[in-house]
Design a protein around this nucleic acid. Sequence first.
RNA 1: GGGCCGCUAGCUCAAUUGGCAGAGCAGGGGACUCUUAAUCCCAAGGUUGUAGGUUCGAUUCCUACGCGGCCCA
Length: 494
Amino acid sequence: MAEGQDEPVGESREEELVAARRAKADALRAAGVEPFPHSFEDVEAIASVLDTHEALENGEETESKHRVGGRLAARRGQGGAAFMDLVDRTGRIQLLVQSDHVGDEAFAAITDLDLGDLIGVDGTAIRTRRGELSLKVDAITLLAKSLRPPPDKHHGLKDVETRYRRRELDLIASEESRALFITRSKVISTIRRYLDDLGFIEVETPVLQPLYGGAAARPFTTHHNTLDKEFFLRIAPELYLKRLIVGGLERVYELGKDFRNEGISQKHNPEFTMLEWYEAYSDYMVIAGRLEEIVRECARAVAYEGEIDFESPWRRETLQESIHSRCGVDIVANRDRDSLAAAMKEKGLEVPETDTWAQLVDELLTKHVEPHLQQPTILFDYPKELSPFAKDHRSQDGLVERFEAYAGGMEISNAFTELNDPDEQRRRFEMQKADADAGDEEAQPYDESFIRALEQGMPPTGGIGIGIDRLVMLLTGSKTIREVVLFPAMRDEQ
RNA sequence: GGGCCGCUAGCUCAAUUGGCAGAGCAGGGGACUCUUAAUCCCAAGGUUGUAGGUUCGAUUCCUACGCGGCCCA
């Protein structure tokens, strides 16, 4: 052992395992072998090797040379021969190492490798008598010594907490987890391609904002030292994106993180990925069509095969109908708090005494409608009180042109025909201020620079936000947002 | 915020009524040239989440706290 007499007693088992691996690395260095070399060029994906030799017969050997790299995942000794499993991002391949082929010295070095070590392999393709496509090893190069033991090679890493806190271990141990995050990446690249092909330009607007807005949420705050000024982490990019529409960019989108200082749940992480796009000369109906199409493209790109039907046109209802048909309460006919509360009581529904009218509508929607919207559904035409940035409905008094889309019992999207009348926008901010004064912590702060931009003239515009994490949840069948976020927010371990 | 459940070796899991904390895998030593959760033999590996309490004796019962999961709000 490498440690001396003054090593603390009661050393943990894990530290012993680490010490044993470190000793191997030291022994390699002493023998002139670098355990952390700089590069290993021209590796081929394991999946490509497997594809190339798919038709190989059992027991057949080839002269076809391949170079692969990856992590040593399993080993089955056999005296003068050893079988090992190598894993890279694309798959797993068996290695056959024979002492009479590589030589006794190399064989000893190879069998001294630890599970979890990163290695480069040169070999020829064969199929074993038992039918497993393998590389018959000519040489193995240690690419990086793994000093810590990997999760169980068969059971993997089951502890949910460890999987989230130490995602690298989860990714090492779980092909499903790797596949999920590759799927997530495909969703995002599909979205970019879809919007790019329509002539949208991708933009980046401030994450650190002097004033927050564009959603009903409480912000995180931070401080800029040089400016000695408080900043907010954005809760949405909406207002900046609309300023770009004023500026004539006409079709813009932003894909990035928003931050909301609220509870953590299976559907909420304090930072999450949002797509917003804005399209000049458009309205919410055009946007609704694009939403269906972009989600369908994503489902196809990831070969979605779950129970949600993303191929057919989505179910469409008004918000009023959606609540009335399920609760028997008409929110449009009961436009004040007391009459809506009375209507709810009449139907035997619970009425939280402190709620405002808007909060009662939200209660009805969240509790009695949303959970039933498993198949994709778009709810149109929201009350003006709930929607400070949506344009008045072209034919319905008191409503705005807004929709929310639901699937899997979850809101995934929110869109408007954007309010572009600066005077009306100013009145909406005044309404928000009244709500804030009444104690609503999610009310919009008055944003004068946004109003000034609208006064410059914004064309009729449709805009939308789509929750990417939730979309990925649906497309991967994940029950919690933590499964689709690489490093979800956690409390401190101690 | 409330209720319930969990926390034991690096990983996956046991432990009867409160009575010396056990396996498998991984790691160490050995055997084995077509295995694939390889197999076989040997040895080793623990502050049972933390802090208290009850008890002759606590992984087990009680209290508090921490972290996580599920359900509810």
